[in-house]
């Protein structure tokens, strides 16, 4: 920039009154939703517990003790009892949050990114491209999600990575379908037409006018899939296809404790209770977000 440019630099714009943006309003409405806030609190606590597991867990999650197998809830030193190998349940539940949340959230987020891209592209471009892409997606969608997840991770072999990969593949079709239908609706609205009439390239129109109006609904749908993902991930671990022992993971814990269901039913039910609570929390937060985003003009 030369001195001349500096001299000619125009005066800054006069300040204007700004209204809170759409997302600011959504957050404000969400913060007034008590149920959603409670769900958010549960999720935040779980995430914090997962992150700081080594600091808050009372014991070593892998240290077993044959003498203390299946201690009931409330045993001194074992506040939530001990599992079938005498490991502290509280510790394993806290550590289990790490893998369970990872298995629940990661596939949904990756699938959100990939599925939205596919769906928005198909919806915006339309025509034959849309037909080819969406019918291909439908082939995957036709499989029941549990079967598809089991088949994929069975083929890929047991392990965390193959579990994540198969869950991601399972969630791409439903997200892509939602993204496609929302985008197809938005594409026909006059402001997109007006943007086209202004000569803007398709990519710019998608970035400025389409994404802002479709990502919200797609995201709400994706958050509702987190609970499904957690349950599927637990299911895979339960079947021995996801996480391998001795890693603490709620689904796997549920599996290994099932033999003890008559001996120590309360202890055996704990991982299930965690899965249930977390799924419910994500679902309630998703519902809250949905109603907070439904702002009538």
């Amino acid at each position: 920039m030369t001195a001349m440019d500096l001299i000619r630099a125009p005066a800054p714009l006069a300040p204007v009154e700004r209204s809170p943006g759409y997302w600011a309003l959504v957050l404000k409405r969400l913060s007034r939703d008590k149920v959603a806030m409670l769900a958010l609190l549960v999720i935040v606590l779980l995430v914090l517990a997962a992150i700081f597991a080594p600091y808050i867990a009372p014991a070593d999650p892998y240290k077993s003790s044959m003498l203390r197998r299946l201690r009931p809830i409330g045993t001194p030193g074992y506040p939530l009892g001990a599992d079938e190998l005498g490991r502290d349940m509280l510790t394993r539940l806290i550590y289990g949050a790490r893998l369970s949340l990872l298995m629940g959230i990661t596939p949904v987020f990756i699938a959100f990114a990939i599925g939205s891209t596919i769906g928005v592209a198909a919806g915006y471009i339309g025509g034959a491209f849309n037909t080819v892409v969406m019918r291909t997606i439908d082939v995957f969608y036709a499989f029941p999600s549990v079967l598809l997840a089991i088949a994929l991770s069975g083929a890929l072999g047991a392990g965390i990575f193959s579990g994540l990969l198969s869950l991601t593949i399972v969630f791409i079709p439903p997200i892509a379908r939602i993204a496609e239908s929302v985008t197809t609706q938005v594409r026909k609205i006059d402001y997109v037409e007006a943007a086209r009439a202004s000569g803007a390239p398709g990519f710019t129109i998608v970035r400025v006018h389409v994404l802002g109006n479709v990502l919200g609904p797609i995201f709400v749908y994706a958050t509702s899939l987190i609970s499904v993902s957690m349950i599927l991930a637990s299911g895979l671990s339960f079947l021995g296809l996801g996480v391998k022992p001795p890693e603490p993971e709620w689904g796997l814990m549920l599996n290994t404790l099932r033999n003890a269901i008559y001996v120590a039913p309360w202890v055996a039910a704990l991982p299930g209770a965690m899965i249930f609570m977390t799924s419910i929390a994500f679902n309630l937060l998703s519902d809250g977000l949905r109603s907070a985003m439904d702002i009538k003009a």
């Binding site: 759409y22 006059d190 402001y191 007006a194 003009a297």
Partner: peptide, 13 residues
């Protein structure tokens, strides 16, 4: 366009 509401992107100022 005719529809004044539909022709403005609701997310943009």
């Amino acid at each position: 366009f005719q529809d004044s509401y539909a022709s403005l992107n609701p997310r943009l100022t």
